[in-house]
C-alpha cells in the first residue's frame, strides 16, 4: 500500500516515512504544498498523511483542492494545530481523520487502519475472501485455517489483491502500489511475485487477463 506523507519538517518526515515503511507501506514524501499538489497520482494512494502548517501554503487549502478535484483517497491530517476549530475545519474540508502531534506510531497506524476499514466498509481489520484470511495489523495470512509464511512483498501483493478483489490491475498499477516512485521498478518483478504467491495460495485465486493484467477472484 502506498502512502503520501506531506510533512515539511525533514527530521519528522524521515522518521515517519521509515516507520511506515517498516510497517510495510510504500511511502512517498512531499515536503511542501506545491510538491504535494503536483503529485501525479494522489488518487492512487492508499491514504495521505497531511501536515497543515506547510511553508508555502495551508494544508487545508491543499485538502480542499484535492477534494474539489474529486480525489477520494482517505486523508489523515497530522498536525501540530490542536484546536477544535482547526479540527472541525479540517474534517469539514474533507479530511477523514485528524491527529495532533506528537502521536505514538501505534496509534497512527491504528487510525490509518481504521481509515482503510472504513473505505472497505468493514468493521474489523480482517480481510476474508474464500478460504483466505489476511490480518493487516497482525500481518498474518491463513489459507483454509493454516498459517502461511509470506515474504514482505508477497504479503503486500496479497493485501492489494484482497483489497481490490474482482478488479483488474495492470502490472503498472501493482508496481505503483508496491513500490515508491524512485525505487527500481521492473515489470517482471510483478510476474515473479505473482508466480510465487500463486504457489502459496493456489493458482485459482489470481486470474491473468491477457494484455490487461491480473484479477483476484472474489
Amino acid at each position: 500500500m502506498r502512502l503520501l506523507v506531506v510533512e515539511d519538517d525533514p527530521e519528522l518526515g524521515r522518521r515517519l516515512s521509515d516507520r511506515l515503511r517498516a510497517a510495510d507501506f510504500a511511502v512517498e514524501l512531499a515536503t511542501c504544498r506545491n510538491e504535494a499538489e503536483d503529485w501525479p497520482d494522489v488518487g492512487a494512494m492508499a491514504a495521505v498523511i497531511l501536515d497543515l502548517g506547510l511553508p508555502d501554503g495551508d494544508g487545508i487549502d491543499l485538502l480542499r483542492h484535492w477534494r474539489n478535484a474529486r480525489v477520494e483517497t482517505p486523508i489523515l491530517i497530522l498536525t501540530a494545530r490542536g484546536s477544535w476549530q482547526d479540527k472541525v475545519e479540517g474534517l469539514n474540508a474533507g479530511a477523514d481523520d485528524f491527529v495532533v502531534k506528537p502521536v505514538r506510531f501505534e496509534e497512527l497506524q491504528a487510525r490509518l487502519n481504521a481509515l482503510f476499514r472504513r473505505q472497505q466498509g468493514t468493521r474489523n481489520n480482517l480481510l476474508e475472501i474464500g478460504d483466505l484470511s489476511l490480518d493487516p495489523i497482525a500481518r498474518t495470512v491463513e489459507h483454509a485455517g493454516v498459517p502461511l509464511a509470506l515474504s514482505k512483498q508477497e504479503f503486500r501483493l496479497l493485501h492489494l489483491f484482497m483489497r481490490r478483489a474482482g478488479q483488474v490491475m495492470s502490472q503498472a498499477d501493482i508496481l505503483d502500489d508496491l513500490y515508491e516512485l524512485d525505487a527500481d521498478r521492473e515489470l517482471n518483478t510483478v510476474e515473479v511475485l505473482v508466480g510465487r504467491l500463486r504457489r502459496k495460495i493456489g493458482r485459482e485465486h489470481i486470474v491473468t487477463q491477457r494484455g490487461m493484467g491480473y484479477r483476484f477472484e472474489k
Binding site: 527530521e11 519528522l12 516507520r19 501540530a80 494545530r81 502531534k101 506528537p102 506510531f105
Partner: peptide, 20 residues
Amino acid sequence: AANLAHSLRTPLAVITDEAE
C-alpha cells in the same frame, strides 16, 4: 501561544519517535 505550541510539538513528535 499557538506558534509556540506548534514549534514544540514537532520536536516532541521526533522525541516520541526516538523514544519508541
